[in-house]
Write a protein that binds this DNA or RNA. Sequence first.
DNA 1: CTGTGGCATGCCTGATGCGCATGGTAGCCC
DNA 2: GGGCTACCATGCGCATCAGGCATGCCACAG
Lengths: 298, 298
Amino acid sequence: MPQDFSPTGLRVLREVAQLGSFSAAARSLGYTQSAVSRQVAALEGVAGRRLFDRSRDGVVLTPAGARLLPRALRVLDELDAAVREAASVDAAGGPVRLGAFATAAAGLVPKALASLPRELEVTLREGTTPALTRALRAGTLDLAILARTPPFRPPDAESPPLDLTTLSERELVLGVPAGHPFAGAQAVEVEQLGGQVWVASRTDSGDSLLGVWPGLAERPNVRYIVRDWLAKLQIVAAGLAITTLAPVALDVLPDGVKVVAVRGEPQETRRLVLARRPGALDGPAARVADALIAAARA
Amino acid sequence: MPQDFSPTGLRVLREVAQLGSFSAAARSLGYTQSAVSRQVAALEGVAGRRLFDRSRDGVVLTPAGARLLPRALRVLDELDAAVREAASVDAAGGPVRLGAFATAAAGLVPKALASLPRELEVTLREGTTPALTRALRAGTLDLAILARTPPFRPPDAESPPLDLTTLSERELVLGVPAGHPFAGAQAVEVEQLGGQVWVASRTDSGDSLLGVWPGLAERPNVRYIVRDWLAKLQIVAAGLAITTLAPVALDVLPDGVKVVAVRGEPQETRRLVLARRPGALDGPAARVADALIAAARA
DNA sequence: CTGTGGCATGCCTGATGCGCATGGTAGCCC
DNA sequence: GGGCTACCATGCGCATCAGGCATGCCACAG
């Protein structure tokens, strides 16, 4: 079993960071100072480094502690929400429940849904491909638009496999500022990307960076860490950085962003697929699926 | 102390949901079936309801279990990322570290940063006001653009107070589709908002919905739950929903979105502030602050 | 020097987690 | 029908863990 940061430990981290003192946090949480000291020590054991610098007057977060704190807060929020939601009454609704990743939600979904009658009720939830896949499996979504990377394996290994319909298959492109040296070209070589400033966002796993060209050989200079695509594109339009774009978003780019292809190996092809659990689609969901297919192929 | 879903319990939930059997999950996780059964029972105790329907052939998630699973996965991802990140090496950099919420990152930051010399290195991190405030306190950001709601209290209660500079103070507006009945009006009454379809996103606490008009008396019909502002605005432009806009975003709206004021009590004013820890700003950070102030007041 | 405040740790006790063994249910086969 | 198999539930017992009390160490002020 891997070592875990315990919910109690994370709560202690939060309180100590806020109050700047083990003793004050202990009073606030209803523990003794001793218990708080030990919880912090346990967190530090898991982290493998000091999370607080100690002084006579109290404690201050170390850089490592400061990095952990936002995650701790997110975990605690999510756990609190989970407990609350578990206690709430569930009502099954009637709409077609669609999930999509952000650029598909911007560049494909509105067009498709606008072509449907308004009485056909669709709800939309934005998420990442792994999260959407899980939600499909869990039955909390009916349809999901997922992005697939070569070699185009199924999005999960579960049986029976999800039913996948390819909506499109195109190559990634660059979004560059209108005044950028690349902007006049139809295409650039992947080797030309070295030294560029990027705007990107972290994936949910925190490892890789969405927005950096995937085949980039060198370590990228990511100066802007922004998840929101409106903000990301405005940073590009302002001439501050470049970013990788999924072709599904090309119809919704603001002025000031130019699209450039990239030549080089490997080819960065992406497949847009519509996924659902196996079995026949009921009428409303089938209509939504048809509309998405039509909009993607138009 | 509140009851918690333990990390081990959530891991068990994930494995049982995936394999459909306590015994199989036990084998996979290195426990006995007995321990798995008890972990699920503990989860069910916290949740106050059954998470799996039991049968001879194994178990199936209940609706409550299916609702908890995505959250569980998020918590586990975050915890795993926290452990990994804690173990990674941290290097302190030299750039001015700016944080901003998404609409400010789209509508103000690019303009301000474009006016600065490129050698003045600025990194940008998107986040919510509470998260950015904490990052300021923790020393991981130098400057943060925060949104404040009346009565314009400080963003946190810690001492000494953060140094706040008001960038602008304007009223929230509505973004509606160009063909919407509201689109021809300069302003609508807040009572007219009843019955509208909204696109909104959940706040980090999961409670409230960003994008629904704050003073709305009735329960809103939120059909589209999307965090990404490019997607949100495209849903509005497609005629599918309306949403609340911060004035900072007005320069970066796509075609097809019209802006309408809302009359009614209370006045929905929002203040955009630049926050930093008390003390003198060094040269680069002061220049970034000046650029943001100039861009906001232009 | 003493007193105060803060964090760290030994010792002890009660709570918790988990394995083993067993119980209960259901289905299949002879 | 009985025997066997598979699955989940629970009693009992043991090891581990969480937290309080008491104490130790350090730094600072008077």
